[in-house]
Amino acid sequence: MTNERLQHMLDAAQQSIGPILHGTLLYTIPISLISFAIGLVLAVLVALANLSDYSLFNKPARFFVWIIRGTPILVQMFIVFYGLPNIGVVVEPFPTAILIFSLNEAAYNSEILRAAILSIPKGQWRAGESIGMSYAQVLRRIILPQAARVSVPPLGNAFIGLFKSTSLVTLITIADLFGAAKLVAASTFEPMTVYVIAALFYLFFCSLLSLGQTQLEKKFGKHAM
């Protein structure tokens, strides 16, 4: 490798850091956090609807999970961003990303929560009911807190998956972590350098998330029976 080539790579690396950091802070992190939060709230509702005995609730919940899980995120995003304008509905890139990722998190995480709720022994329901608690009280005070701790590892997994999947928003014109890298790679003709840097960025943040997950597990893992 010549000195000149090395210099070129270093220049590209230097040029890429700013835009990539900008894309991470402005898009990748906000899209991940907002979608996960909205998705988690929806996931609780979908899981409960799914577990309900009433087909008025469980049928729509199952239909929703079926549609979302059965179609690729990228295709859903293209339908909303490029498809809907065809029928006169224009959705901006950022809201499109939030919408699609929230719905996907809701669908997948609802299954995690459903399994977690089912894993809590029936005796816990009975114990709560035996002291006169209502369904909602047992759920809120007894079942969900225990289901939450069971769900920490798979939800942590889901969040890491989400963080990486947000790179798809590049394809609906958002300059997120990967989108910014793509632009710099094109202008510097150093895709190798720039994409490796992008990968290192993802690796760094996912490692942070893993650490956070371990801490949460420790905190919640106490006194499990």
Binding site: G123, Q124, A127, S130, R141, I142, Q146, R149
Partner: peptide, 10 residues
């Protein structure tokens, strides 16, 4: 009072 006590573990 239950056979398996069913205390709330959390």
């Amino acid at each position: 009072v239950f056979q398996g006590h069913h205390l709330f573990p959390h």
